[in-house]
Amino acid sequence: MSLDLISFIVLGIITLVSGYLVVASANLMHAALFLGLSFVGVAGIYLVLGAEFLAAAQILIYVGAITTLIVFGIMVSNLQDLKAGGRGVWARVVRNLASFRRGLVPLVAAAGFAILMLVIYRQSLWPAEAPPASGSNLATVGRLLFTEYVVPFEIASVILLAAVLGAVALSRRDDQPPAGSTGQAAPAAERKEGR
């Protein structure tokens, strides 16, 4: 068993266990932190697969920005996790078994998808081991990004600009509550101010 395979298996177990805890953990903040750990595991797998630039981008964007943003959002908005019932995901599954939307159907859908894909992967023919890439990954990715994929690159920058504008416009705090919605908006605003 090569070193690559061992590190892949270890990183895969880390990723899967923390991914499970994202769904199953009772505390919302714990779920967000486990999400960060899962992203770190995926970044390690990128390194094993020879995608160094992507691993660095994963650490910077996912672990550094997205997880921080989610944690920040949880803390700012003071969200309490909904009482989902039961401590873990299996207690919830058993309790909700009778309900259509949260019981058997999602479980069958998710497990069925996983089993179907694993069976297909097992029976398919796969390409033989490819030789490792020649040259540095960073140079290759950079050259492709600015020659062949330059149009998607520019579109991505426009998307980011639109997202920034949208996020700022949405989260801007209006001093004057909009007319017509004062009845429901005012108590919540007062509660925030009094805190």
Partner: peptide, 24 residues
Amino acid sequence: MVPLPYVLGLAALLFSLGLYGVLT
């Protein structure tokens, strides 16, 4: 070197975890 089906299988398991979370 890691066989390709291992990577795809891990991705499928991770995807179904996320799918279950989104649905429930």
